[in-house]
Design a protein around this nucleic acid. Structure first.
Length: 430
RNA sequence: GUGAUCGUAGCUCAGAUGGUCAGAGCGCCGGGUUGUGGCCCCGGAGGUCAGGGGUUCGAAUCCCCUCGGUCACCCCA
């Protein structure tokens, strides 16, 4: 704590080796997404506030109390994006991406912002890797969207999670259901906790999240959404489940699973992990058939998922999965006092041109100190520049693993290092 | 937004009842002879004890406030 400033509450720096682990995990994710036909989109980090107000829903927690909204100097209301789907749909409509053929399959990665009270697995700036398939209402695309994170997590070596799915219907069937549920809650209100009494009025679907034992008991006889699905929604849901079997996704139907964002319809799902505490949903998503219309476009349904990267990283750490491969320096260029810095820099640059990972001393340290530094950096070789050898156009090359060292001509240096590295890894350079 | 809990050097932590209590290990920097690492030895730098206020002759140690971390609620990724 030497400096004056700290990162704002709920934010943090991502420093090596975490930053390197993050990079690796993203690469694996991108590769899977691309293999499924998804292409990358990057939207602005902020949008007109209306994109979220209308996209996510006026009454949602996100919109009513969690957004970073500000007025810019032109008087326009802007908001730091709290999630990725609404911006992607905005871009889809604005740029007529459907003209590239539907469904449009897009993926994104980037920071999201929500002003919540920080907690393990919950931050004010966090990162999501997500995908959207827009323009198709084929149940098969729902199952594809659910299967991708499943494949991803398995490839990362993760095991300790469950996939829970549900259908929350469409406007036609959800409305009668909510009426029925509300009526039930009214009749059972004397058995509910105070929070649930409030929920019963504001957001009845949420009532199933309550952890109070008394409430859970009271809700045993509550009507469940899947029993109220209209014919189309029922058929869609059944079909999604069948396709999931075909794709080898082990799922559990969770009739009480709901979503906090208004635009969701039909398919809703979450990936719940063990041992993450309260914030145990590493991935969530679902279908959103009304979102495009809410943003002023023509009706066009879509499905998507989003992975919380910080939570994913935590799950990986907990399961000891996906070990980090520490980057290793190939060669460190050390130099003896009195050596021309220009020549040292030339040698360093030439090694880098040869695609070797190379570094040098920039502190004017003693040779001994440079050796220590090279060792700490994990360098495989040290090149020592200076003295008699240099006058003959040669340098000393030392292998820190075997402690062997040779005198080599400068022109042969890179080649010699390559050969030694090649032996190590059993391959020639290319 | 609510509640609980914690906050001493870069890191992990010692510091009984307030009066050499500002420390250790690791890390970092330097040295152990003239141009060479990993082990070992020696030396050094780094903290207004989260910040502010109060009680007291005197507080890292007691009280209050603020900030931050953690956990839970809430909500979600």
């Amino acid at each position: 704590m030497s400096g004056k400033f700290k990162a704002p509450r709920g934010t943090f720096d991502i420093v090596y080796p975490d930053s390197e682990k993050l990079e690796r995990i993203l690469q694996i994710g991108y590769e899977i997404l691309i293999r499924h036909g998804y292409r990358r989109i990057s939207t602005p980090i902020f949008e007109n506030t209306e994109v979220f107000r209308r996209g996510i829903g006026e009454d949602t927690d996100i919109v009513t109390k969690e957004m970073y909204t500000f007025e810019d100097r032109g008087g326009e209301s802007l908001t730091l994006r709290p999630e990725g789907t609404a911006p992607v749909i905005r871009a889809y409509l604005e740029r007529s991406l459907y003209s590239g053929g539907i469904p449009q399959k897009l993926f994104y990665f980037g920071p999201m912002f929500r002003r919540e009270r920080p907690q393990a697995g919950r931050y004010r700036q966090f990162h999501q890797l997500g995908a959207e398939a827009i323009g198709s209402d084929d149940p098969a695309i729902d199952s594809e969207i659910i299967s991708i994170p499943d494949i991803y997590f398995k490839e990362l070596g993760l095991r300790k999670y469950r996939v829970v799915v549900n259908s929350i219907g469409c406007l036609n069937c959800r409305k009668p259901y909510i009426e029925r549920l509300t009526a039930f809650l009214e009749s059972a209100k004397h058995d509910l906790c105070n929070d649930c009494k409030k929920r019963a009025k504001r957001n009845p679907l949420r009532i199933f999240d309550c952890k109070e034992e008394a409430c859970s008991e009271a809700l045993l006889k509550a009507p469940l959404m899947p029993d109220f699905l209209c014919e189309d929604c029922r058929a869609h849901f059944d079909s999604v489940l069948e396709m999931l079997k075909v794709l080898g996704v082990s799922y559990e139907v969770e009739p009480r699973l709901v979503r906090g964002l208004d635009y969701y319809t039909r398919t809703a799902f979450e990936f719940i992990f063990e041992g993450l505490g309260a914030q145990n949903a590493v991935c969530g998503g679902g279908r959103y058939d009304y979102l495009a219309e809410a943003l002023g476009g023509p009706p066009s349904g879509g499905v998507g998922f989003s992975v919380g990267i910080e939570r994913l990283l935590r799950a990986i750490e907990l399961e000891g999965a996906c070990p980090v491969v520490l980057p290793r320096l190939d060669v460190f260029v050390a130099w003896i006092e009195g050596t021309s810095r220009k020549q040292v820099l030339e040698i360093l640059a030439s090694l880098r041109r040869e695609r070797l990972c190379a570094d040098s001393d920039f502190m004017g340290r003693s040779l001994k100190a440079q050796m220590k530094h090279a060792n700490r950096l994990g360098a495989r070789f040290v090149v020592i520049v200076g003295g008699e050898e240099q006058k003959r156009g040669e340098v000393v090359l030392r292998d820190l693993d075997s402690s062997e060292q040779w005198t080599v001509g400068r022109s042969k240096l890179a080649q010699k290092i390559r050969e030694a590295l090649g032996e190590q890894w059993g391959e020639t350079d290319g």
